[in-house]
């Protein structure tokens, strides 16, 4: 697996963990309010934006000649 895929898979797992136990409980409080939004809500929005950035990065760094499959070996 290429480094790019390892980073992507690791990032994806981390984001998934952020949305469930045991990571989400660390950010499940109301305070601090972030831009007026409770931390518990802002945290989920943050995870959404993180997933968007991760996949966008993965898409933009995709080697042109290689197919985007998990078993194609990357660049």
């Amino acid at each position: 697996m290429s480094r790019r895929k390892i980073i992507f898979t690791g990032g994806l797992l981390l984001i998934q963990l952020c949305l469930i136990w045991p990571v989400y409980p660390l950010f499940s409080d109301i305070y601090p309010l972030i831009l007026g939004i409770p931390l518990s809500f802002a945290w989920v929005i943050f995870a959404l934006l993180a997933a968007f950035s991760l996949l966008l990065w993965y898409y933009l760094t995709e080697p042109e000649e290689s197919e985007p499959s998990l078993n194609s070996g990357g660049s």
Binding site: L12, I15, Q16, L19, I20, S40, F41, V44, I45, A47, L48, A51, L55, Y58, Y59, P68, S69, L70
Partner: peptide, 17 residues
């Protein structure tokens, strides 16, 4: 209700592959 947002965050990604 954040569940409704949470599951879609990673749920769509397998379709990329």
């Amino acid at each position: 209700a954040f569940y409704i947002i949470a599951y879609g965050i990673t749920g769509m990604i397998p379709l990329y592959f």
